[in-house]
Amino acid sequence: MRRQFFRPITAFGLIAALWLPHAAIAQSQYPAKPIRLIVPFSAGSATDILARIIGGKLGEGGQWQVVVDNRPGAGGTLGASTVAKSPPDGYTLILVSVGHAINATLYPKLGYDTLKDFAPVSLVASVPNVLVVNAASPYKSMRDIVAAAKAKPGTLNFDSAGSGSSTHLSGEMFKMQAGIDIVHIPYKGTGEALTDVMAGRGDMMFAPTVSAMPFVRQGKLRALAVTTPARAGALPDVPTVAEAGLPGYAFDSWFGVLAPAGTPKEVIQALNTEIGKALASPDVRERLAAQGAEARGSTPQEFASYIQAEIGKLAPVVKQSGVRAGE
């Protein structure tokens, strides 16, 4: 009896002794291979630009290698679905934007749960949208646009990166609060939309500063107002929408990193720590500022709460605008 009872305990102890050190070593060696950072939008988008800045910084030390993988489509939901279904090992991540919170209301069926199927890692940046017009446009201020729209309802249009995008909802909030009728023209991406504004085929756009700044500097676009509560550091002379005539208007385009739900807490913490270091480095902060973005780290718990709050804030805007996925 004693010998029969003793052997299973010895075998179990041997297995535990062999497995536990192995698990500890595996965690201490993370990452042991390249990390895939999915960008759910096309190359050149604000999300793509930020991903390459952060990913490049993480790779400077040699231990971390980040490969940016663009998976555009369906307003960012294709990339998000890929990550939600990926192994929760810390080697597949996604850089999402405020569109991740918008999509929770916009799409009746996502194929994933916005809150339950992801493990928040960290906020990364806040990027104002900026109301821009062609450099030769007759509109010199936001008030000029409002006056023209009220004089001739339905004759002006605004471009966006797609229905339900932050560039779209910024414009919808503008329409609602200004009490004007301007026509939404959705494109398949920010680049295409900005190209038509610069060519004079679109009257205006609420574009991410990251994407619009180069053209503003080149004199191809005129910046009229930024959507955030405070002025953008890269555009100190450009008023906020609230300052320009719509008190209370505020729309913040944020970006952050998510992992699949079930990713070990130790891995989430390691990622959070390294991203925090990258965001604190002067060169990254300078590069982000040059793009009109502000470095904005957080704890995983803070990011989780932030996403939930954003879903609640943006849901009424989506519903009131009447926008439907795929329009």
Rank of each mutant, 00 (worst) to 15 (best):
F6Q: 13
G164C: 12
A17P: 03
R3Q: 15
M213R: 02
L224W: 02
Q308C: 02
K109W: 12
L314H: 11
L50N: 09
K188F: 08
I15T: 11
A293F: 04
L246Q: 13
Y91N: 10
P236R: 05
S126Q: 14
F158G: 00
K313Q: 12
V121Y: 05
F255D: 05
L110P: 05
F12E: 00
L156V: 00
G13S: 15
L131V: 03
G56D: 00
Y139R: 00
R7I: 14
T227C: 11
A193M: 05
V67F: 12
G276R: 10
D237L: 12
G326T: 09
Q65V: 12
R296E: 11
L115V: 11
M142P: 03
K277D: 05
D89M: 01
A309P: 06
A26H: 14
V83W: 04
L20I: 15
R231Q: 11
L314Q: 08
A80L: 13
F215E: 05
P8R: 13
A11M: 12
P40M: 04
A270G: 10
W64S: 08
Q269S: 14
L314D: 01
G164A: 10
M204N: 04
R222P: 11
Q63A: 08
Y30I: 05
P236M: 00
M1T: 12
V124A: 10
F206I: 00
F41M: 08
H100I: 04
A43H: 03
A261L: 02
G56W: 04
D283L: 04
E60Q: 15
F41D: 13
M205C: 00
I15L: 15
L224P: 07
S86I: 05
F12V: 15
K175N: 11
F215M: 12
V83S: 01
R222S: 15
N103V: 01
P186W: 04
V267M: 03
L93K: 05
Y139H: 15
M198S: 04
I38K: 00
L194D: 04
E286Q: 14
G75R: 09
S97R: 09
S165I: 05
V197S: 07
K33I: 02
A207L: 01
P8Q: 05
H100A: 10
P21A: 03
L258P: 09
G200C: 06
H168D: 15
A151S: 10
G189V: 06
E310F: 01
Y306R: 06
V133W: 01
N272Y: 01
K188T: 14
L58W: 00
P236V: 01
Y30Q: 07
Q320G: 01
I185A: 00
S122F: 02
I9T: 09
F6M: 13
A309V: 04
P31T: 03
W64Y: 13
G61R: 13
K313G: 01
A280H: 07
A80H: 09
S126E: 14
Q65P: 07
T273K: 11
N129F: 07
S211M: 07
T263N: 04
Q291L: 14
L131P: 03
P316I: 11
G76L: 02
S45P: 11
F303K: 06
T155R: 08
I49M: 09
V66S: 02
S211V: 13
L95F: 00
I102H: 08
D117M: 06
D237R: 14
Q4W: 09
T228N: 06
